[in-house]
Computed example of a mutant assay.
Amino acid sequence: MQLNTRSENGVEVITVDADRIDAAVAISFKDRMRESLTNGSGRFVLDLEKVDFIDSSGLGAIVAAMKLMPQGSKLELAGLTPAVDKVFRMTRMDSIFVIHPSASAALGA
């Protein structure tokens, strides 16, 4: 599982460079997120624009990553593909996370 992190205007943007977040990669994803979250604080944007599929293990890994964040930090999501967006809405996870149409929209917010 490859994650790329960049800092822009005081916001840490974490881009998932994979087409799936499922049971096969959930533990690896959570470990990489832990590494990315320790390098910053404040506002984080998880860019999921390359992710075409997510299952319950993937959702759980994102929630677990959110719980690992430093006190006072915030995790927002961006770039959800239609299939991934549908999963977030069906599970009501869209009420937990701020969701932006893209990473650039998140940076402008």
Rank of each mutant, 00 (worst) to 15 (best):
Q2H: 11
L3V: 05
L3R: 01
N4V: 11
T5I: 09
R6N: 01
R6T: 01
S7P: 00
E8C: 02
N9R: 13
G10T: 02
E12L: 10
I14N: 01
T15I: 02
D17Y: 01
D17P: 00
A18M: 03
I21E: 04
I21W: 00
D22N: 14
D22I: 05
D22M: 03
A23C: 07
A23P: 07
A24T: 11
V25S: 13
V25H: 05
I27K: 13
S28H: 09
F29C: 10
D31W: 00
D31N: 10
R32Y: 08
M33I: 06
M33F: 08
R34S: 13
R34I: 00
E35Y: 07
E35A: 13
E35C: 10
S36N: 04
L37F: 10
T38H: 08
N39K: 14
N39M: 11
N39P: 04
G40N: 06
S41T: 13
G42H: 06
R43W: 12
L46F: 05
D47F: 08
L48F: 06
L48D: 07
K50R: 15
K50S: 14
V51R: 05
V51L: 08
F53A: 13
I54M: 12
D55A: 13
S56G: 08
S56I: 04
G58R: 03
G58H: 05
G58W: 01
G58V: 01
L59Y: 11
G60Q: 00
G60L: 03
G60E: 00
V63A: 14
V63H: 09
A64W: 02
A64N: 05
A65L: 04
M66Y: 12
K67P: 11
K67G: 09
L68H: 08
L68F: 07
M69T: 14
M69R: 15
M69P: 11
P70E: 15
Q71E: 15
G72W: 02
S73G: 15
S73I: 09
K74P: 01
L75G: 03
L75T: 01
A78P: 04
G79T: 01
P82G: 01
P82N: 04
P82S: 03
V84I: 00
D85Q: 10
K86S: 14
V87D: 05
V87A: 09
F88A: 10
R89S: 14
M90C: 10
T91R: 04
R92D: 06
M93S: 12
D94G: 06
D94Q: 08
D94W: 02
S95I: 00
S95H: 12
I96Y: 10
I99Q: 09
H100N: 10
P101S: 09
P101R: 11
P101N: 12
S102H: 07
S102R: 09
S102F: 06
S102T: 14
A103T: 08
A105D: 15
A105P: 07
A105Q: 14
A106E: 05
A106M: 10
L107D: 12
G108Q: 15
G108L: 12
